[in-house]
């Protein structure tokens, strides 16, 4: 499902203009990363996608729905939202009940709830602990549980606010694998993250925000190559990109494999000269 933002501005009651004339189209099945320093407007923007905030000006369309005509609970059928802190949502006695809470809110049949719970817990690797208490899990696993709860909503669009925050390498790897699977399933994924390596590795497209406006957007490779623009937005490219730039290598390698390949070619060319 695609998502369109047309001429959106948002002003908080305090008077702060958090978004200023945003136009954006996210095609179905895309994996988009939204970057920017704190206060750039990233979270405000994504909160418009599921109606937690309403634009002061402009329109947000979720597929053919004008978000202004639907409640957040109704939009929850189309847009899933993973919050930064899992502890802001967990309250049930077991993992299975916690994951099933959203589908039950949407009126799914008990059999359907069971099916979604089992699939979501399997996807995040917590299926063996379905009857455990959520607070018996360590914090990084509670994040995976919150992600399972979001996945179980079965929404075509998923918004992930800082999915890797607080995760060790194992957790980061798990989230990486889950995103890859969800992307393969055709979900539209929108993530906000300060984890540049993670974004560079997974996002197809990037959008960098500055002072409530879109500062730069494009394919991940394009955006990562625009050092000056990234500097202006206080966004540091991943270490591999910076290393390549320091070596004056052509191209923008986003993964270790890309870097090794490009480095070999570059060395070969240099030697042949």
């Amino acid at each position: 499902m695609n998502l369109r933002v047309e001429g959106v501005s948002f002003r908080y009651p305090s008077g702060v203009l958090a978004l200023d004339g945003i136009d954006l189209a996210i095609p179905s099945g895309q994996l988009l990363a939204i970057l920017g320093e704190n206060g750039a407007g990233k979270t405000t923007l994504v909160k418009l996608f599921n109606g937690l905030l309403r634009p002061s000006q402009g329109k947000v369309y979720i597929g053919d729905w004008d978000s202004a005509e639907h409640t957040t609970a109704a939009l929850a059928r189309r847009v899933g939202f993973l919050f930064q802190n899992p502890d802001d949502q967990l309250f049930e006695r077991t993992l299975a009940r916690e994951v099933g809470y959203g589908p039950r809110n949407l009126g799914a049949s008990e059999a359907e709830v069971k099916r979604r719970v089992a699939r979501a817990l399997k996807l995040v690797g917590l299926h063996d602990m379905a009857d455990a208490h959520p607070y018996d899990l360590p914090q990084p696993q509670r994040k995976l549980l919150a992600l399972a709860a979001t996945i179980a909503m079965d929404t075509p669009i998923l918004v992930l606010d800082e999915p890797t925050i607080g995760q060790d390498e194992v957790g980061r790897g798990a989230i990486s694998r889950i995103l890859t699977d969800l992307h393969r399933m055709g979900r539209t994924l929108i993530m906000i993250s300060h984890d540049m390596d993670f974004c560079a590795e997974h996002a197809q497209r990037m959008l960098v925000m500055l002072n409530g406006k879109i500062h730069v957007e494009g394919t991940t490779e394009d955006v990562m190559g625009q050092t000056k623009k990234l500097d202006e937005a206080e966004v540091a490219p991943p270490q591999l990109v910076r290393l390549a730039q320091a070596l004056k290598m052509p191209g923008t390698p986003l993964t270790v494999d890309d870097f090794v390949d490009e480095y070999k070619q570059w060395r070969k060319k240099k030697k042949s000269k």
């Binding site: 937690l52 409640t71 957040t72 609970a73 802001d88 949502q89 809110n105 979001t150 909503m153």
Partner: peptide
Amino acid sequence: VIMDAQQARGLEL
């Protein structure tokens, strides 16, 4: 924040 999170999970206020 909690209210936002639960609404995002389909909780109708």
